[in-house]
Amino acid sequence: MLRYIIRRILYAIPILIGVNLITFFLFFIVNTPDDMARMQLGVKRVTPEAIERWKAERGYDRPVAWNAAEQGMAKLTNTIFFDHSVRLFAFDFGAAESDGRDIGHEISTRMWPSLAIALPVFVVGLLAYVSFALLLVFFRATALDTAGVVMCVIAMSISGMFYIIGGQYVVSKLWNLVPISGFGDGLSAWRFLVLPVVVGLAHGLGESGRWYRTIFLEEINRDYVRTARAKGLRESRVLFRHVLRNGLIPILTGVVVAIPSLFIGSLVTESFFGIPGLGSYTIEAINSQDFAVVRSMVFLGSLLYIIGLILTDISYTLADPRIRFD
């Protein structure tokens, strides 16, 4: 088991390196730092001196991967590649290009608001969607099931942004229950969190509910379910003891991959509700074309996803005895 986990972790390293190389290529090879400087400073009226100054301030004036002017290890370390790609592995993200603030510090403070929304949506959502799907499966091939599926299909055909806009309009503007957007300190933040969480839950219902229903329906057609019925078990017991347990394996392992990424939050939700999380941080960076922040977020996002993959493998071994004992 431990060996297995170690193997998965080691396997993640080349992938992370690959991600790093792709981002480096995108940010420094496709366009040169000169291009970026020109763009940041305004394409038309820009002097070569201004470009050089801009690059020097951010350390982009050095060679890409090999600094022949330096001695020893510095030939490698005093380069753009080392400073802006290799250092990421040590969570040294550097400073933002737009305002010069430390990205690492921003990330560590901004991830909590993101988590405060994403985690409840994830946990409550999982429970709610599984229960909903089981309900539909229990009443399968009845009018209730059909209505549920139709509702799911309609719900998943609506863009997530309409849920947010609709929620804000009805709950905040018409009913005046909670603020439209913003964020508070400590426990007072709950007033700002309720609506994003509820909207997030509503948004996920259609797709997840239908997906889980399909999984459970697939399980309910298996031979062991027939065996359980032949034992004289009640339908509810067949569902909860046999179908649920087996169906949860693909569901759990399917959602575990998303757990680490909860820190990143949702770009759209946070931006609409003015939550100062990592999602809105990313959007701000995109809008101000702050490449250092976008680069850091790409690396962080990939890292968390890869951790999610490892967790998925581990959860598989925990959830499925066929793999646990193999």
Partner: peptide
């Protein structure tokens, strides 16, 4: 009928490999 199944009449199937619950 559920009281009959498994009590008065029991049944075994062709594929023992798939007829047992794999996670129980």
């Amino acid at each position: 009928m559920r009281d009959v199944r498994g009590r008065r009449i029991a049944m075994i199937f062709q594929e023992p490999g798939t007829s047992l619950d794999p996670v129980m």
